[in-house]
Structure formats: structure tokens, C-alpha cells
């Protein structure tokens, strides 16, 4: 079954059109990556799906159901987003407990305390962090809170916007392992935006390369590992990554 389907998606900010006819189909349980340099429109695609860039035309379907342009509660239950910067994405004056519990309050779900503890456990956060504020946590712990927040409503799809680029390599490894385990345990579908190809190679099944608002190539992860991408631009990106690896 197709978890997430985009068809001829044109997204604009004001008069500027950012993406041009983006079409994608992501199967349930699949981990899909969007790669490209900054300004290629990859984050904008995630924002449009999450409802943060409402000025779009085309079609966004989630588990077969079309998404509307406004705030959509049913949609929020299925699809949640994790942002790039854990320092910026958590409310500085809310404790971990308040941040995690908020989604339950909005959706009128009871048994709040048990659910908060359950999710904190699944992302590997000790109970002692429950009543702390974001500034009392390290970058890696904060990103775990951000992931926990996204998981509160038991979504099927996670949108990940560069989830590890603000972290150190050693912490990045912890978060990547966590995401991989969560996906296996909860049968999640990932749509991840990144410019780090090795991360794609570790976490994803398929990838799409974007440039100037258009998808230039969709490839299987094995093709990336073998260095078998077809478009010249994708190969260029690959060579830059390879040049830094030793």
C-alpha cells in the first residue's frame, strides 16, 4: 500500500514558485530520502506535506486520503515531523512532560502520564528527564525529545528534516540507530530530507535527487552504494561526498 503520494506538487512562497511538478510514491514501511543542496526545495516539500507551506497546488495523499490545505487533525495523527535543529524546535519554557503531553491534550486522548513515560522509554530517555527544560538537556537528548514528541500520537509516517545535521558525529550515530530501531519496531514510514549521502546509505531504501525545485532522479539505495546514479548532477553530489570520506 502507498503511504504517501505526491502528484504534480507546485509549492510557492508568495510570487516565487519553489517546486515544479514534484511527484512521488512512497510505500508503507519504506524509508525514502530527498537529497539536494540548499535551495533545491527539498525542505519545502516536507513543509507542504506537514501543512507549514499552505500555498500549493497538486495533490498530497496520505494512506489513500487527500490532504486539505488547512489544519487537519486526522492528518496529524498519521503524519508527524521532526525538525533539524533541536535547539530551536522545542519550546524553551515548557518541560519535556508539557511538550510531549500537549499533543494528547489537543487530540483529547487520556492516560497521558502513562503514554508520556512509554514514549520516553522507547526513545531511550530516562524518567528523570521528564520534568526538565530543554536548556538542561544536551543536543542529543533534545533530539530524542523532538522524536518522542512526533511519536506521541502513534503516527504511521515521520517526516524528518535533516534530523542529525546539527549533532556531533558520535551523537549522530546514536540518533540514527534510534530512528532505525523505531522504524523496525513501529513499522514507520520515513520521508527524510538531508544532504548527507552516507546517512541516506545507512537509513534509507530509496532516494530522490532534487535540483532547483525538480526531481532529477529517483534511485534505489543499492545504486547509490554501487555509485551507479545516472544523472550527471547526482554523480556530482556523490563525488563531493566521496571526496571527503577516507
Amino acid at each position: 500500500m502507498i503511504a504517501l503520494s505526491l502528484k504534480d506538487l507546485d509549492i510557492s512562497y508568495g510570487d516565487t514558485q519553489i517546486t515544479h511538478k514534484v511527484s512521488l510514491d512512497i510505500a508503507e514501511g519504506e524509508s525514502f530520502a530527498l537529497v539536494g543542496e540548499s535551495g533545491s526545495g527539498k525542505s519545502t516539500v516536507l513543509k507542504a506535506i506537514a501543512g507549514l507551506a499552505p500555498q500549493w497546488t497538486g495533490e498530497i495523499r496520505v494512506l489513500g486520503k487527500a490532504r486539505s490545505h488547512g489544519v487537519d487533525r486526522d492528518f496529524s495523527r498519521i503524519c508527524q515531523m521532526v525538525f533539524q535543529d533541536p535547539y530551536g524546535s522545542l519550546h524553551p519554557r515548557k518541560t519535556v512532560d508539557a511538550t510531549l503531553g500537549e499533543a494528547l491534550t489537543i487530540h483529547g486522548i487520556g492516560n497521558r502520564s502513562a503514554r508520556v513515560e512509554e514514549v520516553m522509554g522507547s526513545v531511550g530517555l530516562d524518567r528523570k528527564f521528564r520534568f526538565r527544560f530543554p536548556h538542561q538537556l544536551s543536543g542529543g537528548q533534545r533530539q530524542r525529545v523532538a522524536i518522542a514528541r512526533a511519536l506521541m500520537l502513534k503516527p504511521k509516517i515521520l517526516l524528518l528534516d535533516e534530523p542529525t545535521s546539527a549533532l556531533d558525529v558520535s551523537v549522530q550515530a546514536e540518533i540514527l540507530n534510534l530512528l532505525k530501531r523505531l522504524r523496525r519496531e513501529q513499522n514507520l514510514t520515513f520521508l527524510m530530507v538531508t544532504h548527507n549521502l552516507p546517512v541516506v546509505s545507512f537509513l534509507c531504501d530509496r532516494l530522490a535527487v532534487m535540483r532547483q525545485g525538480r526531481i532529477v532522479e529517483v534511485a534505489d539505495i543499492d545504486e547509490l552504494k554501487r555509485g551507479d546514479l545516472k544523472e550527471s548532477y547526482s554523480r556530482e553530489l556523490m563525488q563531493i561526498s566521496a571526496a571527503h570520506a577516507t
Binding site: 558520535s170 549522530q172 550515530a173 532505525k180 552516507p198 546509505s201 545507512f202
Partner: peptide, 11 residues
């Protein structure tokens, strides 16, 4: 701990 372009490790 750095992932590689031709990553094969599961964790």
C-alpha cells in the same frame, strides 16, 4: 561512528 557511502552495517 561515521556512516559510509557504501554502508552495510545494520547498527
Amino acid at each position: 561512528s561515521i556512516p559510509r557511502l557504501d554502508e552495510t552495517r545494520d547498527e
